[in-house]
């Protein structure tokens, strides 16, 4: 069983070490702290449960019609290159949802993606363990052992997952999408491991909205931890008690 995973690990380690070396070069410059949100961990250091990566979406800053996060995600992960699939068959890691309260008429616009639950139903139901959660809270699909049964798609309360309906080419090295497997938002784990921010967060900030912040929920000094401590925030389908890593403010 371990043979099956070995070549891939080696490849990832190689890529990771390269990235870590690059990141380390920047950090080593005296007195320069480029990464206020997250520090790259050395590639040979295991992911730690001391960290809980999360996002906070401030819906009051997220505007109807703005799609910057979605566009950035699609670009980052090479999504939208299906040539045969119908619209309903195309992969979406993140989508903008428009809300209008039936009684009060209040409206909200917000992005919905994998909520990176502490106890993810997709991980519970996956027969092979392909759906898994990293120690730092990021929920991923191991595309080497996903058999494409789609049970995780049935189980996800957020409809966050997509199934690859056709053969794809020119995938991004960090997002090895393949026909017949299920996929979803990776919280840009490849960026996070390099100490960078997820593409959607970066794009939202670049757009001037600053509606999404990313960081370590377990680090009391991080901006996200301070914000969720100070202001009321909520989870989508909090009734399920999944303790999601993605939280919403102003909803």
């Amino acid at each position: 069983m371990s043979d099956h995973k070995q070549p891939d690990l080696a490849r990832r380690e190689f890529l990771g070490r390269g990235a870590a070396a690059a990141a380390a070069g920047v950090v080593l410059a005296p007195g320069v702290m480029l990464y206020g949100v997250a520090q790259a961990k050395p590639a040979d250091e295991p992911v730690s449960s001391k960290v809980r990566w999360g996002m906070l979406v401030d819906t009051s800053k997220c505007s109807n019609g703005c799609n910057a996060c979605v566009d950035a995600c699609n670009k980052e992960h090479g999504l939208g290159n299906e040539t045969h699939s119908r619209d309903t068959q195309r992969t979406q890691y993140i989508r903008k949802v428009e809300l209008r309260h039936k009684f009060t008429g209040a409206t909200h616009s917000l992005p919905v993606m994998c909520q990176h639950c502490e106890t993810p139903p997709c991980v519970d139901v996956c027969p092979t363990g392909a759906s898994f959660k990293r120690a730092d809270g990021i929920v991923l699909v191991d595309r080497h052992i996903c058999i494409g049964c789609r049970y995780c798609m049935m189980a996800c309360p957020y409809k966050a997952r997509s199934f690859v309906h056709e053969a794809l080419t020119d995938q991004r090295p960090h997002t090895p999408r393949g026909k017949g497997c299920v996929e979803s938002c990776t919280m840009c784990v490849h960026r996070v491991d390099e100490g960078r921010q997820p593409a959607c967060v970066e794009a939202c900030a670049a757009d001037g909205s600053h509606a999404i912040i990313f960081g370590d929920l377990n680090d009391p000094s991080s901006e996200i931890a301070q914000r969720v401590k100070t202001y009321a925030s909520s989870e989508i389908r909090a009734d399920l008690g999944l303790n999601t890593g993605v939280r919403y403010q102003g909803l």
Partner: peptide, 13 residues
């Protein structure tokens, strides 16, 4: 996902 709300999105919400 959002009880009490009318919802719409590009992903058939």
């Amino acid at each position: 996902l959002f009880p009490g709300y009318e919802v719409s999105s590009s992903f058939a919400d």
